[in-house]
Nucleic acid binder design. Structure first.
Length: 218
DNA sequence: GACCAGGCACATC
DNA sequence: GATGTGCATGGT
């Protein structure tokens, strides 16, 4: 994986992720960006901010239907209002609304607590661990999966943990490295690996194994 | 108008 | 355990 990381970093440069001002904003964004483009998520977060509610206790107290209206631009707004409230319940009721205290908790413990929240799966939990808590946890998303599968690094049917292990096996366990690599994979996926067949201008094109055919799915 | 976007839970076989 | 489906807005 080191070769992929090197190539992407040389090609695109540092990505300066996650695009948020505070750890709490990262947490909110991590839920809202599920299967959703970031442009739409930003509108939703801006509306929360403009309402003066980008803070856990106030947001949790807000009427669920009003919360849904605030986040409408990011899609699945009723569903996500519920999921966000489930996360806020953990912050407010288990940690007294103290985000810093929550994020300072033991990482394994925190990951379990996050995964126990209905609406938070492995990617959302790992995003919060890496980008809000600053823990060295690699985030696997659809781009990670697609880019690596299209370039013959993993199987198309590899599971979350398989991909995570492939990515971290040959890299230093380091927050900045994981941060950058995930962001770079999203960037290359977005710009070069969306449609089939593969794009010749992809910076990873010559890292392909020889003669490997493109899989039919995806 | 079709297709896509930084997932996840739940139903069904 | 695998596979399918609902959730929804906004850009290309």
């Amino acid at each position: 994986m080191h070769d992929v990381y090197r190539r992407l970093l040389d090609h695109f440069g540092p990505q300066a992720w996650w695009p948020a001002e505070t750890p709490f904003e990262v947490m909110v964004g991590a839920v809202l960006t599920q299967n959703t483009s970031w442009a739409n998520v930003r509108r939703a977060i801006d509306q929360i901010r403009e309402a003066g509610l980008l803070e856990p206790t106030a947001l949790y107290k807000l009427d669920p239907e009003e919360l849904a209206e605030l986040i409408r631009p990011c899609g699945y707004f009723r569903l996500k209002a519920g999921r966000l409230r489930n996360l806020l319940r953990l912050v407010v009721e288990e940690y007294g609304g103290d985000v810093e205290a929550m994020l300072a908790d033991d990482p394994d413990e925190l990951r379990r607590a996050l995964l126990a929240v209905n609406g938070i799966g492995p990617e959302t939990a790992d995003s919060i661990l890496l980008y809000a808590a600053g823990r060295p946890t690699f985030v696997v998303d659809t781009y990670t999966h697609r880019v690596l599968a299209r370039h013959g690094r993993i199987d198309f049917d590899a599971g979350y943990h398989d991909v995570q292990e492939y990515c971290t096996a040959s890299l230093e366990c380091d927050v900045q490295t994981y941060n950058e690599l995930h962001a770079l994979l999203v960037r290359v996926g977005h710009e070069h690996c969306r449609k089939r067949p593969r794009c010749a201008a992809c910076p990873l094109a010559d890292l392909l194994p020889d003669g490997r055919p493109l899989e039919p799915g995806e």
